[in-house]
Amino acid sequence: MTFKAIINGKTLKGETTTEAVDAATAEKVFKQYFNDNGLDGEWTYDDATKTFTVTE
């Protein structure tokens, strides 16, 4: 399945996608990506659209 992340950061904005077997796996991938890029913020997840949003 394809999962999307919308990034609303102070220094980084945009979208990225990942292929994962479930939402928990996708969340781990996205959180690692955000940690690697120095992002920290509020997380939400919309199961209907398979979209994570992080707002810094």
Results as ranks from 00 to 15, higher is better:
1 M>A: 08
1 M>Q: 12
2 T>N: 05
2 T>V: 14
2 T>W: 12
3 F>C: 05
4 K>G: 04
4 K>T: 14
4 K>P: 03
5 A>P: 03
5 A>T: 04
5 A>G: 03
6 I>L: 07
6 I>G: 01
6 I>Y: 08
7 I>R: 02
7 I>D: 02
8 N>H: 10
8 N>R: 08
9 G>S: 11
9 G>M: 15
9 G>H: 11
10 K>V: 14
10 K>I: 13
11 T>A: 07
12 L>D: 09
13 K>M: 11
13 K>F: 12
13 K>V: 09
13 K>D: 06
13 K>A: 08
14 G>I: 15
14 G>K: 11
15 E>L: 08
15 E>H: 09
15 E>N: 06
15 E>F: 13
16 T>M: 15
16 T>I: 15
16 T>H: 14
16 T>Q: 11
17 T>I: 09
17 T>H: 10
18 T>E: 02
18 T>Q: 04
19 E>A: 07
19 E>N: 12
20 A>V: 03
20 A>C: 07
21 V>Y: 08
21 V>M: 11
21 V>P: 14
21 V>F: 12
22 D>R: 01
22 D>E: 03
22 D>V: 01
22 D>W: 00
23 A>P: 07
23 A>L: 05
23 A>F: 10
24 A>M: 09
24 A>P: 08
24 A>Y: 09
24 A>H: 08
25 T>C: 07
25 T>V: 06
25 T>D: 07
27 E>L: 15
28 K>L: 10
28 K>S: 09
29 V>Y: 15
29 V>E: 07
29 V>G: 01
29 V>M: 09
30 F>K: 00
30 F>Y: 00
30 F>C: 01
31 K>I: 07
31 K>V: 07
32 Q>F: 05
32 Q>T: 09
33 Y>D: 02
33 Y>F: 11
33 Y>G: 01
34 F>T: 11
34 F>G: 04
34 F>S: 04
35 N>H: 14
35 N>K: 15
35 N>C: 13
36 D>R: 09
36 D>V: 10
36 D>S: 08
36 D>T: 07
37 N>F: 15
37 N>L: 15
37 N>Y: 15
38 G>Y: 06
39 L>M: 11
39 L>G: 06
39 L>R: 04
39 L>C: 07
40 D>R: 12
40 D>Y: 15
40 D>G: 10
40 D>V: 14
41 G>V: 11
42 E>F: 12
42 E>L: 09
42 E>P: 05
42 E>H: 10
42 E>Y: 10
43 W>N: 00
43 W>R: 00
43 W>M: 09
43 W>E: 01
44 T>H: 13
44 T>M: 07
44 T>D: 09
44 T>P: 01
45 Y>Q: 00
45 Y>N: 00
46 D>E: 06
46 D>K: 01
46 D>L: 03
46 D>M: 02
46 D>H: 04
47 D>S: 09
47 D>Q: 06
48 A>Q: 09
48 A>I: 10
49 T>S: 10
49 T>G: 03
49 T>Y: 03
50 K>M: 09
50 K>V: 01
50 K>N: 06
51 T>Y: 01
51 T>W: 03
51 T>G: 01
51 T>N: 01
51 T>S: 04
52 F>Q: 00
52 F>S: 01
52 F>K: 00
53 T>C: 06
53 T>L: 08
54 V>Y: 13
55 T>I: 10
56 E>H: 08
56 E>F: 11
56 E>I: 15
